[in-house]
Amino acid sequence: MRLYGLKNCDTCRKALKSLPNAEFVDVRGQGVPENILSEAYEAFGKALLNTRSTTWRGLDEYTRNRPVLELLVDHPTLMKRPLIEADGRMYLGWTPETRQALGVA
């Protein structure tokens, strides 16, 4: 299981605490492999993009209109998080549905 997120994100820390066996990947330093991004985009579409983030607010209109995958490659902190890859499935966010699917109370 891999958890893609930011080390200073409270939600990612909560998820990691509940999933102690997960491998943590800091997207700011390591990025997200393009195949994982493509798979996540296929599963979640534009929901993968965090349009409430500070990074998003700092982008100009031209940049915001670029394709989602290009934006996420150039600005990995724009990804909603955590993105969890487990047993061939992808989960986005630390929602009650994600916790239930992963067997976490």
Rank of each mutant, 00 (worst) to 15 (best):
I36Y: 02
Y4I: 07
A22W: 03
Y41Q: 08
A43N: 10
A105L: 04
L83R: 06
L3F: 01
P67V: 07
T55E: 07
T98S: 07
R57E: 11
G58H: 11
A40K: 02
C9R: 01
M79R: 02
V32D: 05
L6H: 05
A101R: 11
L72D: 09
G5K: 02
G103Y: 06
L49W: 01
C9A: 05
Y4H: 02
M90S: 10
V104Y: 03
R28A: 14
L19F: 08
R52T: 14
T11G: 05
P33F: 02
A101I: 06
R81E: 04
A86T: 01
Y62W: 04
R13T: 05
R99M: 13
G93I: 01
P82M: 11
S38L: 13
L72M: 12
D26N: 11
M1I: 06
A40F: 03
P67L: 11
T11E: 04
L71W: 04
E39K: 13
K46V: 14
L72K: 08
N35G: 00
N65E: 15
R28Y: 10
A15V: 06
Y91L: 06
S18V: 00
N21F: 00
N8Y: 01
L83P: 13
L59S: 11
Y41L: 13
L49F: 05
C9T: 01
T77F: 01
L69K: 14
L78G: 10
M1L: 11
T51H: 00
R64P: 12
D74S: 13
D60P: 11
F44C: 10
W94E: 04
D87E: 15
L49R: 04
D26L: 03
D10R: 02
R13G: 05
P96F: 06
L92R: 05
Y41K: 02
G31D: 10
L92Y: 03
E23N: 01
T77E: 12
Q100T: 14
P20A: 06
R57A: 14
D60N: 15
E23G: 05
L78Q: 06
K7R: 15
V73W: 04
A15G: 12
F44P: 08
R2C: 07
G88Y: 08
E85Q: 13
G93P: 07
N65K: 15
G88D: 09
W94T: 04
S18N: 13
L16K: 12
Y91T: 09
T63R: 07
S38K: 13
N8E: 05
V73F: 09
T51C: 08
D74P: 00
K14S: 12
T98D: 03
E70G: 01
L16R: 13
T51K: 15
V32A: 07
D60H: 11
R57L: 13
T98R: 02
F24W: 05
R52A: 15
T95L: 04
G93E: 06
R89K: 15
L78I: 01
E39I: 02
M1D: 05
R66P: 00
L71V: 08
W56P: 11
